[in-house]
Amino acid sequence: MSPVTAQKLALRDRLLTARGRRPLLDVGEGARRTAEHLLAAPEVRRAATVAAYVSIGTEPGTGLLLRALADAGRRVVLPVLLPDGDLDWGTYRGDTSLAPARRGLLEPVDRLGVDAVATADVVLVPGLAVSPTGMRLGRGGGSYDRALARVPVGTFTCVLLNDDEVGVEVPVEPHDRAVTAAASPSGIVRF
């Protein structure tokens, strides 16, 4: 294991432990405030298509955000985890359009292909932390780094986090992809 990989592993462990200790009421309130900031952001207000994800466990919540985006007439595409760890995408048509999948995920039932993320005007991704320069730390599978590599330069790419996960020094490897912003209950930070 390389020193950078070991540093990432230790940081992920620390961040996941902190998330596990976060009260569910705080998770819910944070999700509401983060959704408000994103829905007010000019990039999201003018977007026709938003790529997002269905949060699980103590991840910053996305349920309210997904419903609000759909209610506002945005086309929302969500990831489908493929066996090789890459991401296909499908259309969100409300909570009933989602099916249980591996790893406790909920995924859309239709399939648009791995390149569908490139059609989004806004790409919202999960993460565990983001550096002051926009380098995102994910869970280590590389799924979102692959997806972000397909997104055209200039697209608003934003990681959803808790306040204390923004501005963290993140170890970086060559395959890691930066995001252009981070959204948390305190607001949106652009890089």
Rank of each mutant, 00 (worst) to 15 (best):
A35E: 06
E43D: 05
T62Y: 10
R22S: 13
R21L: 15
Q7H: 11
G63N: 03
G61W: 01
P42E: 11
Q7E: 15
A41V: 07
L11D: 00
G61F: 00
P42T: 08
A51K: 03
L64F: 05
L81F: 01
L78T: 00
L64S: 01
E29S: 13
L25H: 10
V27P: 09
I56N: 05
P60G: 06
G57C: 03
A6D: 14
T58S: 15
E59A: 01
A51V: 02
V4Q: 15
E43V: 02
R12A: 09
P60S: 04
S55M: 12
T17S: 14
A72G: 05
G57E: 03
L69C: 06
R32A: 14
Q7P: 04
Y53M: 07
A52L: 03
P3N: 02
V4D: 13
L15R: 00
G57N: 06
V77M: 10
G57S: 04
A70L: 11
A40F: 09
R19A: 11
G61I: 00
D13T: 15
P23C: 08
L16S: 02
P23F: 09
A31N: 03
R33P: 08
A72P: 03
R67N: 03
L15V: 00
V44I: 08
L9Y: 12
T5H: 14
T49P: 08
A72R: 11
A68Q: 11
L64V: 05
T17V: 13
L25G: 13
A18R: 15
R22T: 15
V54P: 11
R21C: 12
A68V: 01
L15T: 00
A52T: 00
L64W: 02
P60M: 03
G57Q: 05
G73C: 10
V77C: 13
P23K: 02
T5K: 14
P42G: 03
A52N: 00
T34C: 10
P42I: 04
A6N: 05
A48Q: 15
A51W: 06
R32H: 12
H37N: 08
E59I: 00
V76Y: 06
A35M: 06
L82S: 02
R14P: 07
L9Q: 15
R33T: 09
A72Q: 04
A35Q: 06
R14K: 13
V4C: 11
P42F: 06
A48Y: 07
D26I: 07
A6F: 05
V76C: 08
L24Y: 12
R33V: 08
R21D: 13
R32M: 08
V80Q: 04
P3T: 02
P42A: 09
L38P: 12
A40N: 13
G63K: 07
D71A: 09
G73L: 09
V76D: 07
R74Y: 02
T62P: 09
R75F: 06
R32S: 12
T34R: 06
R12P: 10
L66M: 05
V54G: 08
V50S: 00
E43G: 00
A6W: 04
A40R: 15
L15N: 01
A10E: 15
R45G: 09
V44M: 07
Y53E: 10
T5W: 12
R22P: 12
A10Y: 10
L38T: 04
L81W: 01
R32I: 02
S55I: 04
V27F: 12
R32W: 11
L65D: 01
T62G: 11
R75H: 08
V44L: 04
A10M: 11
T34G: 10
A31S: 13
S55H: 14
R74A: 11
D13W: 04
V4M: 12
